[in-house]
Write a protein that binds this DNA or RNA. Structure first.
Lengths: 245, 245
DNA sequence: CGTAGTCTTGAACTGCATCAACCAATGTGG
DNA sequence: CCACATTGGTTGATGCAGTTCAAGACTACG
């Protein structure tokens, strides 16, 4: 199974997909050992991105997708007039860069919100391999489709929800994803500023701050800067489902 | 029922992709004749959808994508509480149903806004064929990625633009797509109601109506119900790029 | 320890929603 | 073919959610 030569520094740096604890998030289940090691072979480089630095910028040539190993990212699209919109926050096990396939150039910036590590997935190799490994092809399509469905959900949020509903939905979504990664469902540390949350939710930072305060007054949350404790998850859920009453 | 020599009614109904005038919109360029006819072979059924009827509903099992041949569609996502959001309008040459890949069930409704025809593309066959035809695989990925990029643009619109900017951007987008299909860049007939435009743009129908009237007063548009004539395209463009001044 | 970045809170403003009336176009049954 | 209903669109008056502007507090970090 493992080779007999002495492990080099490079080997130590590189953790194979087959041994990665994020496997269930990235890869299809039911792969053979052969298929798994083919995938291992194309995930060449790991890359470290320090807080505030970019993985890529809009306009840069697209060549690879990135799977977040550790850390936290935001993706931002910019209009010609300077307006910016955060289009998503990505955590461990999530894929960044799908936008680049469309034109061979990235259409957004991907910025690390804390020191992070990503696995680089050269896109041409992914296409080649997914022609051979049916399950990989299908999984990749599902991931792209899931991104489309997610975006539609955000459009619903931006198009028809009020500030409290947006923030509640945002928090529930975050905790759900954190919980899937083994973290608490009730305590979280925000990696992004109020302004970034606001940009994502189509609100101003002051509105985000006020809404946090309101939830705290109502006993739904405990808010200490970026430390959030959810005291009443059901109440949050009720806020989201409130419609317009 | 039908012999192999004389063309049957069925043959008459079916227009091969290789002969379709929407080809450049759907398919990659540079395919061999063999590859083209493989693609022809999987585009089995054509389907007619009358105005107001659905191509599919959220929750239904996903089995195929649909390429619009003629007509006009909207896609709508619904929240548990009944809120609805139009996530897109699709015209000839555009693909509907990518959302279904994610969970094997559709996550939105697709409704015809006028009598329409679609080409059914069985998804499993598309996956099989795209493992063999590299260009098809790549084109398919580009189409999914393009949808993601488009959605991000809508998020920017919904998150940070004002009513006039949204409507101007919407009209420019529509005319651009119509122009790519050989229609006039300055005259268009809206296929959707003010309410549907409003839902897409995150506005109420009254606001859409008022904004149309405002553009008319300013001499940018001529509005007669659903007949729109663009008198000053540059002015529309300026409205979009206005930022917040 | 001070300076910059982030967050909170207050007060006033405004763009869009809401409510409501009316109009135009289209369809329906007598 | 006309009275009537229905659907979609326009316009006005009013209200409010969220923005804007501004000031102060907390935190982190060189």
């Amino acid at each position: 199974m493992h080779d007999t030569t002495t492990p080099s520094r490079l080997d130590a740096l590189k953790v194979a997909c087959s041994a990665c604890n994020l496997r269930e998030l990235c890869l299809p289940v039911g792969l053979s050992d052969d298929e798994l090691s083919s995938i291992d072979s194309i995930i060449g480089t790991r890359r470290t991105v320090r807080r505030g630095e970019s993985l890529f910028h809009a306009g840069e040539a697209f060549s690879a997708l990135y799977a977040v190993r550790t850390g936290f990212f935001k993706t931002v699209v910019s209009a010609a007039d300077g307006r910016e919109q955060v289009t998503g926050f990505q955590m461990a096990g999530e894929l960044i860069g799908l936008d680049g396939i469309s034109t061979d150039h990235h259409s957004c910036d991907a910025i690390a919100l804390e020191d992070s590590q990503v696995c680089m997935i050269p896109y041409s190799q992914l296409e080649t391999l997914s022609r051979e490994v049916m399950l990989l092809q299908h999984q990749f399509h599902k991931i792209m489709s899931r991104e489309i469905v997610r975006d539609h959900g955000v459009m619903l949020l931006l198009g028809s929800m009020r500030a409290e509903e947006r923030l509640a939905a945002f928090l529930l979504n975050l905790t759900q994803r954190l919980q899937a990664r083994g973290f608490s469902a009730s305590a979280l540390v925000l990696r992004m500023t109020r302004e970034e949350i606001g940009s994502y939710l189509g609100l101003k930072l002051e509105t985000v701050s006020r809404t946090f305060s309101k939830f705290q007054e109502e006993g739904i949350l405990e808010v200490k800067q970026r430390d959030i404790r959810i005291l009443d998850q059901n109440a949050l859920q009720r806020v989201v489902n409130a419609a317009n009453c």
